[in-house]
Amino acid sequence: MQKEKRALQKHQRTYGQRAKRDLQKNWSVYLMLLPVLLFFIIFNYLPMGGVIMAFQNYRIRLGLLHSQWVGLDNFRRFFSSIYFNRLLTNTLTIGFKDILYSFPITIIFALLLNEVRVTAFKRVVQTVTYLPYFISLVVVCGMVMDFTEQGSAISNFIGLFTGKQESLLANPKYFQEVFVISGIWQGLGYGVIVYLSALGSIDESLYEAARIDGANRWQQTWHITLPGLASTCVIMLILKIGSFMSINYQKIILLYNPATYEKADVITSYVYRVSLGEGTDYSYGAAIGLFNSIINLIFVVSANAVSRRFAETSLW
C-alpha cells in the first residue's frame, strides 16, 4: 500500500519538482551547455532583440531605449524606394540562377564520378575539384577578375560573338553569370560529397539483379541510381531554397562596382552599403535586413512543408 502510494507520487510529481530533480542530477551537463548558450544569446538573440531599431530612428548616442519610435516608416521608405524593385529582382534572379545552374550540374557530376571504376582516378578527381573550396573568397574573386578581364581567354571568346573587347565584370549583362559560374567552380567538389555518399549507400544487389535482367548502364542509372538519389536531392533542394535570400553578399561586395549595381546589387549588399559601408543609416539598414530575414524564413518553412507533404522527407 505504502509502496504503491510512493510509486504513484513519483509519477505525479509536478513539473517544477521534476525540473528541480533534473537540475540536481544533471547540473554539470547544464554547466557544460552554458557557454554555448551564452554565445548564442549574445551573438544571435541579442541582435534579434535589436531588430526593434528597425522601428526607430536609431541614434547610437540615445541607444535602443531612448531613440525615437517611427513605426513602419523605415519599411515604407524602403518599399517606395526606387531601388526596391531592382534589389528584389536581383536577389531573386541570382538565387534562382544559382539553383538552376548549380543544382543539376552537381548531380550530373556526382553521377559521372560514380560511374568511374578506377578508384584511384576517382579519388584524384575528387581531391582536385575539392581544392577551390579551401581558397578564400578574396583570392577567388581576384582570380575571377583575372579570368574575365579584357584580353583574357573568356572575354575574348565572348567578344567573338558580341564584337566588343571588354572586361566582363564591367558590363552588368554578365555579372550574374560570372557570379554563379564562379560559385559553381568553387563549390562543386564540396557539393558533390553528399551525393556521392548517398550513391555509395545504394544496395549493390539491386544493380546485380538489374544486370541479370539485362539492364544496360543507362537503364540501371535511370531505374536504380536516380530513385536512390531522390530523397537526398529533395533535402539539398530544400536547403538551397532555404538559403535563397542569403546570397553570398560578401562575394557580391567584392565583385561589384557602381557600373554593375543595376544587376549585381542585392538586398543584403545594399544593407551593408547604406548602414555600414558608405552610409550610417542604421535603422533603415536594420529594417531592410529584417525584411530579408522574414522572407528567408518564409522560404525555408514553406520549402520544408512542401517536401513533407509531397516527398515525405523534411528537415524537421
Binding site: N44, L46, P47, M48, G49, G50, V51, M53, G242, T268, V271, Y272, S275, L276, Y282, G285, A286, G289, L290, N292, S293, N296, L297, V300, V301
Partner: peptide
C-alpha cells in the same frame, strides 16, 4: 533559420 541581421 532566423537572424537579427548585419546592423543589429
Amino acid at each position: 533559420l532566423f537572424n537579427g541581421g548585419l546592423v543589429p
